[in-house]
């Protein structure tokens, strides 16, 4: 599919708005830092804008952007030096399972995630969100809620098992797994 390059500001803005959040989410998946994720996506769009007369995207924009942002994110991690080289390879493999598409896709995922969260017992949801949204350590969650670290872990394990069962976005096939596992890094 040939996608015409958006030359005018209005359609470029539309493209930007449609994909911005999903691309930030992909970058976040890799770098686990919200500000860094935003910067990476801004860099991508600035580059894309400046080359808009030269680039011809033969595939659709979505997969082009996803690939580029993933590459930039891995590159950022590499340059930051806070991740071991062999871990980079694993993160790259993991991130290939997370292909945020665009706004609609992300909304569907998000709705599915919250639907599943709503079905959990209140305490489990609270523990899960404290750990995964507020990034509070297990030890501190246990202290705040007056429960044992082990209970915190059990809650999170059960929450994750439930989410994997309930949410469609976790569907990954072993074939894809093998392919990306063996795939060398692109740089």
């Amino acid at each position: 599919m040939h996608q015409p390059m958006p030359d005018d500001n209005a359609s470029f803005e539309e493209l930007f708005r449609k994909h911005f959040v999903a691309l930030c989410t992909i970058a976040y998946y890799v770098v686990e830092d919200k500000d860094a994720a935003r910067d990476i996506v801004q860099d991508f769009f600035l580059d894309y804008w400046s080359k808009r007369h030269k680039i011809r995207i033969t595939n659709d924009f979505k997969s082009y952007a996803t690939g580029a942002v993933r590459y930039l994110s891995i590159d950022y991690l590499k340059r930051s030096g806070r991740v071991k080289l062999e871990d980079l390879e694993v993160i790259d493999g993991l991130s290939r399972h997370f292909t945020a598409e665009d706004r609609e896709w992300k909304e569907a995922c998000y709705t599915a995630l919250w639907k599943a969260l709503e079905q959990m017992p209140e305490q489990r949801r609270k523990v899960f969100l404290m750990s995964n949204q507020d990034k509070i350590k297990y030890k501190d969650i246990a202290e705040q809620l007056g429960i044992s670290v082990n209970t915190v872990k059990t809650h999170i394990r059960l929450a994750l098992q439930f989410l994997r069962m309930e949410c469609k976005w976790v569907m990954t096939t072993p074939v894809v797994f093998l392919l990306c596992w063996k795939m060398p890094l692109l740089f």
Partner: peptide
């Protein structure tokens, strides 16, 4: 999947 859930919550 765990990282995907975190990324979606960050979204």
């Amino acid at each position: 999947d765990a990282r995907a859930a975190q990324a979606l919550l960050a979204a």
